[in-house]
């Protein structure tokens, strides 16, 4: 009896919470779509009124004027490469830290974790100097390197946690079977840590996709710039084409949401892979 009641109460509670947060999260997105179909005059008059006529041409204008397609391709290339490198390096390092005992590993881990604290906005001049020193100003490689590096602390932190959660017995058994260091990492640990890899990868990808300051600071030619340039294309010192910007924002969301869904599917695949172990 009590069990049933609690179940009912709990599931009501559950849906109330979920639905209210879904509204909270989805409302900005709906507003954005709606606002991107208005004229600037309508938007300035009242941001919450429906447009008289839906201005679908805002989208074609935005895509053409700012060259969004090229920018999205650039963003995809840069974000994918930076995410791949970042997850590879971070998982290697996290594997070394989480699964092995050596006297300086706590120092290493704390140091890298402390990297999350660093206010990246304060490092504009050093980063500009470093990238120039490496002769990577205005190159895709330069951005890839910076993004890969600035995401390392968070990725290493998350992955170390996930690696620690994998039962020791599996690794020890493979060790006795003669698996060496590299094989243990690639064949045993990586497949088992898939949910973690996918999670860290999601965040790393989003970081690359949304990063704005260094994307503008370290590049100058439109051929290699990212989607964030496309969004800022509509705002200037004295005049902002808000609806054009919103259209660009909506367009920019689609690829990153797709990547999110793809990555998160790996989390579920990871579950199946994990449950095989029994």
């Amino acid at each position: 009896m009590t069990k049933d009641n609690s179940l009912n109460f709990y599931s009501i509670f559950k849906w109330v919470i979920i639905i209210s947060f879904v509204v909270y999260a989805v409302f900005p997105f709906l507003w954005l779509v709606l606002a991107s179909l208005k004229t600037n005059a309508e938007l300035l008059d009242n941001p919450f009124k429906l447009p008289k006529v839906f201005q679908f041409q805002n989208y074609s204008n935005a895509i053409q004027e700012a060259g969004l397609i090229q920018l999205i391709i650039n963003s995809l290339v840069i974000s994918t490469c930076a995410t791949f490198l970042n997850i590879l390096f971070a998982s290697m390092c996290a594997f070394a830290i989480a699964r092995h005992i050596f006297w300086w590993k706590n120092v290493l881990f704390l140091m890298i974790t402390a990297g999350i604290l660093v206010p990246l906005n304060a490092l504009i001049i050093p980063y500009y100097a470093i990238i120039n020193f490496l002769n990577l100003y205005d190159t895709r490689l330069g951005l890839i390197l910076v993004y890969c590096a600035v995401g390392l602390p968070v990725s290493t932190f998350i992955l170390t946690e996930f690696f620690k959660g994998i039962p020791k017995e599996i690794e020890e058994a493979s060790y006795l079977d003669g698996c060496n260091f590299v094989a243990r990492y690639f064949r045993i640990m990586l497949p088992l840590a898939l949910p973690g890899l996918a999670t860290a990868g999601t965040f790393q990808f989003i970081l690359c996709w949304n990063e704005f300051i260094y994307a503008m600071l370290l590049t100058s030619s439109t051929e290699i710039r990212t989607i964030q340039f496309g969004i800022s294309y509509f705002t200037n010192e004295f005049f902002s084409d808000y609806v054009g910007m919103f259209a660009a924002v909506v367009v920019s969301i689609l690829p990153s949401i797709t990547v999110f869904i793809l990555f998160q599917e790996r989390v579920i695949t990871g579950l199946t892979a994990g449950s095989v172990k029994g």
């Binding site: 504009i124 500009y128 503008m216 600071l217 030619s221 340039f229 294309y233």
Partner: peptide, 22 residues
């Protein structure tokens, strides 16, 4: 032309360029 759409960042970039010498 190198397009600088964001004025704040353009100003920061100039500061960085003045500081590092080119």
């Amino acid at each position: 032309v190198e397009e600088q759409t964001d004025y704040d960042i353009y100003a920061q970039k100039l500061t960085a360029q003045i500081a590092t010498g080119e």
